[in-house]
């Protein structure tokens, strides 16, 4: 074989690999949609069901947007579920104590952001690893939520609080609008601001960033604050949707948000957390859950399948990467 032929072959393999790395996860998602459509053409692709899916994933998408910011720097946030739960409980307790709804929400948002900043102080300034730091605060925040709520579900929230999670503007559910706003905000932050550039630089190489005049500690601290802020929004919307607050209502966010970001890292960009990818990850998880429900598959089996999907996606993208 001549040299040119070989080179040509190599470059073809390269572009095929690149194509799979960039678009494979999206293709997988489309395939998933097709499969469910073929299996249940009467139910799955209906407008009502799709609206249902989007409504279901809205809170996860909000929380995962914040987690994306942290994961861009190469850190990790396990505490978002606990923050969402705690924020939900505090909002409910404030409203039940007679504080008006907007003020309760504002206080709860500050609380969530503060909780995120606490993570940031321990991790960026105290030198804890993000995993250990947020594992510890997750445990502590859950404890606080259980303690102050007495471990029970809080009912009897004011009527005007329903709107966030259950109301809609025209045909668009209000929670979906909040999701879109969250996604746009984080997208702009990551792609269009100097702060976003610094986050990605730190994720690429923290030492280089420090030598380039970036205050790496402050940038990481703020990332955790942002993650806490979006976890709080997620927690409030969830509480409104359920119209009750449970001290562990937010727990599933912890793993689902991380899973969505990891899935997203396999899409569009090579191995890098990015917001479009996160959105895709959230949608994949939402569609999976919905489709399997429609097919009447047991929720335990759903968990198993979700695990397998995540492993497959990450495995395939890393295989494609190796081959290139």
């Amino acid at each position: 074989m001549t040299v040119e032929k070989k080179q040509k072959k190599a470059s073809n393999e390269f572009s095929a690999g690149k194509f799979i790395r960039t678009w494979g996860t999206l293709l997988g998602f489309i395939l998933l949609l097709l499969i469910f459509t073929v299996i249940r053409p009467d139910v799955f692709p209906s407008g009502r069901n799709l609206k249902n899916v989007i409504e279901q994933v809205a809170t996860l998408a909000i929380v995962a947007s914040g987690v994306t910011v942290v994961m861009v720097t190469g850190d990790f946030d396990l505490s978002v579920g606990a923050i969402a739960s705690l924020v939900g409980i505090v909002t409910a307790m404030l409203m039940k104590a007679g504080v008006n709804t907007p003020l309760s929400i504002l206080i709860a948002l500050l609380l969530g952001t503060g909780a995120g900043l606490i993570n940031g102080v321990f991790i960026a300034y105290g030198g804890l690893s993000a995993f250990v730091g947020t594992l510890a605060t997750m445990t502590a925040f859950s404890g606080v939520a259980l303690l102050i709520s007495g471990g029970t579900t809080l009912f009897g929230l004011p009527e005007n609080f329903r709107f966030l999670g259950q109301g809609s503007l025209g045909i668009i559910p209000f929670s979906v609008l909040i999701m879109v706003a969250a996604l746009l905000t984080v997208y702009t932050l990551l792609e269009q601001t100097t702060y976003g550039r610094r986050l990605y630089a730190i994720g690429g190489n923290a030492e280089v960033s420090f030598f380039s005049g970036i205050d790496t500690k402050k940038v990481r601290l703020m990332a955790f604050g942002i993650s806490g802020f979006f976890a709080a929004i997620g927690g409030i919307v969830l509480t409104s949707r359920l119209y009750s607050a449970h001290p562990q209502a937010g727990s599933p966010f912890m793993l689902n948000a991380a899973a969505a970001v990891f899935l997203g890292m396999t899409a569009f960009r090579e191995g890098e957390a990015n917001l479009l990818g996160t959105l895709l990850g959230v949608l994949i998880m939402g569609v999976m859950g919905n489709g399997l429900n429609i097919m009447g598959i047991n929720t335990y089996v759903q968990s198993i399948l979700t695990g397998i999907i995540i492993i497959l996606a990450v495995l395939l993208s890393s295989l494609a990467k190796k081959k290139a």
């Binding site: 550039r197 690429g204 190489n205 280089v208 380039s212």
Partner: peptide, 21 residues
């Protein structure tokens, strides 16, 4: 490679990194 460049970011992002402000 350890202190000067973020190897897996683009060339222009690297060049502009120090002067973002």
């Amino acid at each position: 490679r350890k202190q000067g460049l973020v190897l897996d970011r683009s060339i222009y992002e690297n060049i502009s990194l120090m002067s973002l402000n």
